[in-house]
Measured scan of single mutants.
Amino acid sequence: MFYPNSPQTSPQLTQIPYGQQYAMMQRQIQQPYHPFATTEPQARLYPYHYQGPIQQEQGGFITQQSTAASPQYVQMRVTPVDQSIMSGYPNQTANGSSSSSFNYNIHPQQQQQQQQQQQQLRHHAMPVGSVPLQDDRYRKQLIVNYLAPDVTSTDLHELFSRFGELDGARIIYDKQTNMSKGYGFVYFCHAEDAKEAVERMSGYEFHGKWLKVGYSTNPLNIVPSNSSPYVHAGSRGAAG
């Protein structure tokens, strides 16, 4: 039997160049792979992502010199942007860049009308829970959420009447099932009393439920100042 490094198959040491006398086997001759043993700084910083320098080929596509990437890492192929796409944008300079302001050559009167329309939209648009300043009635009506099913309009009136005089209180019921929808409205005579009720009743436990109280901004629920107070009856038909 002959071994790869046996004296019968191995040459004389004098015939082997210096430095390879003890590297006779194939696994010894093959050098191990060192990912950080390279002179390129990109490979030292990113050993798993770097795959060699990027070269520009004919046709405008950018390719990489090395083989496919590892399945664990996804390499994105980048193509140059066609400058003709950006030619339609206004205020574009000769080098292809555009300024931040756009001039669509709008007539001054049209621009003024658009600004007025935007101001009107901001004036009428009102986020949930906010209180408008032009109508004091919005500051007097509250919406009470997360009410228990057994709470009546009379219970709601008695709960909030300790903060001040009320114009009314009612629970909203479903017309088909005649069941409470879980929320109601309270109408105060003074805005200061309503503000105190919002601050003190939010998070209050009532009939096993934690109440959420806020201003009601729905104009359909506003009680006119010259109208008669609501009837605080315990029956659902009268309260709904």
Rank of each mutant, 00 (worst) to 15 (best):
P4I: 10
P7N: 14
P11M: 09
Q12P: 03
Q15S: 04
I16S: 08
Y18I: 05
G19Q: 08
Q21I: 12
Y22Q: 14
A23C: 06
M24Y: 00
M24R: 05
R27I: 15
R27K: 11
I29G: 15
Q30F: 00
Q30P: 06
Q31N: 14
Q31D: 13
P32M: 02
Y33C: 05
H34E: 03
F36V: 02
F36Y: 03
T38K: 00
T38D: 01
T38M: 15
T39Q: 00
T39I: 12
Q42G: 11
A43K: 01
A43P: 01
A43T: 07
Y46K: 15
Y46P: 04
P47G: 10
Y48F: 08
Y50N: 02
G52C: 08
P53R: 05
I54N: 10
I54D: 03
Q56G: 03
G60M: 15
F61A: 08
T63Q: 13
T63Y: 10
S66Q: 10
S66A: 08
S66D: 05
S66T: 12
A68G: 12
P71T: 10
P71H: 00
R77I: 13
V78W: 14
T79W: 15
T79M: 00
V81C: 15
D82V: 10
D82R: 07
S84D: 12
M86Y: 03
M86T: 07
G88A: 05
G88Q: 02
P90Y: 07
N91I: 13
N91S: 08
T93V: 02
T93F: 14
A94P: 10
N95S: 12
N95V: 08
G96R: 05
S97E: 15
S98E: 13
S100Q: 12
H107E: 09
Q109Y: 11
Q114R: 05
Q115R: 06
Q116K: 14
Q118R: 04
Q120N: 00
Q120G: 12
Q120F: 07
Q120H: 02
R122C: 00
H124W: 15
M126N: 00
V128H: 09
V128C: 02
V128Q: 14
V128K: 13
G129T: 05
G129Y: 03
G129N: 07
S130H: 07
V131N: 04
P132Q: 15
Y138V: 15
I143M: 07
Y146S: 09
P149S: 04
V151H: 11
V151C: 15
V151Q: 04
S153F: 00
S153P: 03
E158L: 08
E158K: 02
E158I: 13
F160W: 15
S161R: 12
S161C: 02
F163M: 13
F163L: 03
E165A: 12
L166Y: 06
L166K: 05
D167S: 01
A169Q: 05
R170A: 10
R170F: 00
R170Q: 00
Y173A: 10
D174W: 02
D174I: 04
K175N: 12
Q176D: 15
T177P: 03
N178T: 06
N178L: 05
S180Y: 03
S180F: 08
G184L: 10
G184I: 05
C189M: 07
A191I: 14
A191C: 07
E192A: 01
D193V: 08
K195A: 03
V198P: 09
V198H: 08
V198L: 07
E199V: 06
M201W: 11
M201E: 08
S202A: 05
S202Q: 13
S202F: 04
Y204T: 08
H207Y: 09
G208Q: 05
K209S: 03
K209G: 05
K209R: 06
K212Y: 07
T217D: 02
L220F: 04
P224C: 12
P229K: 13
P229I: 10
V231I: 13
H232Q: 08
H232W: 00
A233Y: 00
A233T: 06
S235N: 07
R236C: 05
R236Q: 03
A238H: 01
